[in-house]
Design a protein around this nucleic acid. Structure first.
Lengths: 231, 231
DNA sequence: AATGCTATTGAGTGTGCGACCAATAAGCAA
DNA sequence: TTGCTTATTGGTCGCACACTCAATAGCATT
């Protein structure tokens, strides 16, 4: 072990140390859960004493909220970048839906599930969840508005459509800790894509590859219901 | 204080006591959350010593799982009774959707949210969640199959449709601890109804009153939000 | 009324948590 | 180099938790 026993002190600027602490806490939140953000756990992560964490976050709940906030915000930036100059709205939406379906997204699903539950007991966290919730809705709504403006999407109410897609994503995300997730019928995993394509007036397959249709199954063909203007 | 200090012992049959404990725990789960099911809390509820709870549930996690299981099961019976002889599938579905939208359903939403998160850490609970999940899906699928057989519903895949409706309900339920829930546009609250009507080939309004478009009366029918295109 | 089984208690163990605070030493400024 | 500010430490306190176990007492049987 290179870190000798007496463990020399390293003194950092408050800003740097604070950022370090939040980053460590966010990492713990993503991998182990928000309730694992304890003074002792975060201190161990940074190889400092628990008292130091208390010094920067006199109320531990504030650290939890902060850690969640940064984790969720950075994930939003990754999945729905504010600067969308790179590609068309359709491509951005397809990319988002592709990533949220992958297994790598499970940690994020767990984080949201975790935060939404824990915010029942922790006001500071609840406030942060509200902020992030609004941010995701805003980004999604802006994306859809953009798509509508460019003639790619067609919907009467971009906000409601945005929320509708997010609700489906959340609903599936709720299953992240259930064993059954992977054995669900493919149509279930494709629910966000199907929902988005339907609500935005897109042709099936536009936002994600259709499941292999070659076999004559009864189900895939029908759009699922009477077609019409979305809402 | 009527309960005298020495507190006379009351000796009950193991079956009765066990049921009593589970019931008390389930009540705590619904009102305060699954993590509030502690030996002390449940013991206090029944006015016995914590050790007694340990006697019936040597591993506390098992009590949590059991409490959740009974609460969820009894709620399923309430919302989607196994015996559906009383009314048509359409009416049963409408009734379910009406109740799940009401505020009285918030405790159930919280319980599911709670259980789905906590099952990340507690295997016994995770197993129970899996069982209840399957039970809800089965009931819903059976209801839809029934409706299809009677010509009321039209869908290619009853199971997928059932899951789809449940996913939307879960997705909305995830918001139960957020302050924003009540200020969502009415169209969002009606998402489960809209989804069900669309996926089952029903005319809009069949499963729930449409938001009153004709006249802004103060009649009790007002679903609770200002009418008009929100935002 | 006496007996035996066992449901129930009371007391104690060890763990992990947030919070608090005086003492210490790192690193900047004089 | 010296001094001073303050980031950091080490230790402590009180609390809540699950779990263990010998002692006690309710109650059905005799």
């Amino acid at each position: 072990m290179p870190s000798s026993v007496p463990n020399k002190r390293i003194r950092k600027s408050p800003a740097a140390r604070r950022a370090e602490i939040v980053a460590a806490a966010a990492s713990v939140a993503l991998t182990e859960g928000l309730e694992c953000i304890t003074l002792r756990r975060v201190a161990e992560e940074l190889d400092v004493r628990p008292g130091l964490i208390s010094h920067y976050f006199p109320v531990a709940d504030d650290l939890v909220a902060e850690a969640y906030g940064t984790a969720a915000a950075s994930e939003l930036e990754e999945l729905l970048p504010a600067d969308r100059s790179g590609a068309t709205p359709t491509r951005h939406l397809a990319r988002l839906l592709a990533r949220t379906t992958g297994e790598a997204y499970d940690d994020i699903s767990r984080l949201w599930l975790n935060a939404r539950h824990l915010s029942r007991y922790r006001p500071a966290l609840r406030a942060r969840v509200g902020v992030q919730e609004a941010a995701w809705r805003d980004r999604m709504e802006a994306l859809i508005r953009d798509g509508v403006a460019q003639g790619e999407f067609r919907t009467a109410d971009p906000l409601v459509t945005a929320i509708q897609i997010l609700v489906v994503l959340d609903g599936l995300g709720m299953l992240v800790n259930s064993a059954a997730t992977s054995e669900d019928p493919p149509a279930v995993r494709r629910l966000p894509v199907t929902t988005a394509e339907r609500e935005l007036g897109l042709a099936p397959g536009t936002l994600g590859a259709m499941p292999d249709d070659s076999a004559p199954t009864a189900d895939s063909g029908g759009v699922g219901g009477p077609r019409g203007a979305a809402r």
